[in-house]
Simulated assay, not measured.
Amino acid sequence: MAKVHKKEIRRQEIVAAAQAVAARDGAEGATLRAIAAEAGMAANAVLYYFGSHAEIIAAAVHASSDRFLEKLDEAIDPGMGPTARLAAVISAGTTAGLDDDVSRILYEYWPHMLRDPEQRRIQEELTAAQERVYRDIIDAGTLSGEFSPVLDPARIARTLVAQEDGLVMDVLAGSASSEYVLDLMGSLAAALLGVKEEILLGLVSARNGSSPAA
């Protein structure tokens, strides 16, 4: 196993501190001073490891993005059929980042992509990766005959990711429950892919230990 350099360990600790502050106090509260305090360092010492506050934030958002994608990958078992994989990704994409603040951190910085090119790049890469996950499942399901897409698969993948993004914001804001969002996502995916709604919703609910919404 490759030895991790002490400087890299310290960088990881600073990134973790930035994530913790952003999750607790929001993007506005994640100042250089606050991140340094969380890491147990002086602010000028933090800049030895990162060139700027913006660089720290970009690293924190990128780490959160990577962890979210890991959660999607962890949700899928190689032996799953396309419909089961679809249910797993809907479930993970909607709820996986809520248990450890990954989604909250990503959403805190989502508006920053309007003005920050680096934040825009990170968010665009995350969206493209999410779309690829859905597209691979759609292609496999179409090939096996489980799915009958009503739109171009790329459009369906984009629609599902966009819908998921907006609905998770509702969950974070407290204006919708995870159960409601999962049911809505499952119903939408079933309609777009020609899957029996009750089957897909049953699989989604089974992964979350709940009953399909009425």
Rank of each mutant, 00 (worst) to 15 (best):
A18C: 06
L69T: 09
L192Q: 00
R207A: 01
V61W: 03
E198G: 10
V61N: 01
R132D: 12
S144T: 11
A18G: 06
R155L: 04
L167I: 06
V4D: 08
G51K: 07
M80R: 00
M41V: 13
I35Q: 13
A213S: 15
S64W: 04
T127C: 13
K3Y: 10
L32A: 05
K6A: 14
P78S: 05
T31F: 07
Q12P: 10
A140L: 03
D77M: 14
V171S: 04
V195P: 00
G166R: 05
A157W: 15
D183Y: 09
L86W: 05
Y48L: 13
R85N: 03
A34V: 10
G26P: 06
A87K: 04
L47I: 08
T95E: 14
V161Y: 09
Y134Q: 06
Y49I: 10
F50M: 15
A189E: 06
V133M: 15
A2L: 08
R11Y: 06
V133P: 08
D170P: 07
E179F: 02
D101Y: 00
A88V: 01
L114Y: 15
V133C: 15
L32V: 08
T94N: 08
E74P: 13
Q123W: 07
E28V: 11
A128W: 01
D152P: 15
G51A: 04
T83F: 13
V61C: 02
A87S: 14
A176Y: 11
D101P: 01
R85T: 03
P82C: 07
N44M: 11
D66V: 10
A18H: 02
R121G: 07
L143V: 14
Y180A: 09
A87V: 03
Y48D: 09
V171D: 01
R155F: 12
D99P: 04
L193E: 04
A190R: 03
P117A: 08
Q12D: 04
P149S: 00
L106P: 00
E124C: 02
S187K: 07
P212T: 10
D152E: 12
I9H: 03
E108M: 12
R85K: 07
L201P: 01
A75G: 11
I137S: 09
K6Q: 15
R120S: 04
L184Y: 04
Q123T: 08
R120T: 12
S210M: 09
H53V: 14
G141V: 00
G174Q: 08
A96P: 15
S91L: 04
D136T: 15
L193I: 09
E38C: 05
K3R: 09
R207D: 02
E38D: 14
V102G: 00
S211G: 11
D77H: 06
V4L: 09
S187G: 10
L126H: 11
S177K: 05
Q130S: 11
A157C: 08
Q123F: 07
P78Y: 02
I137A: 13
G194Q: 09
E124A: 14
L69C: 02
A16W: 14
G194N: 08
V15T: 03
I76C: 03
L188C: 05
I105K: 00
Q12L: 06
E197R: 04
R11M: 10
H5C: 07
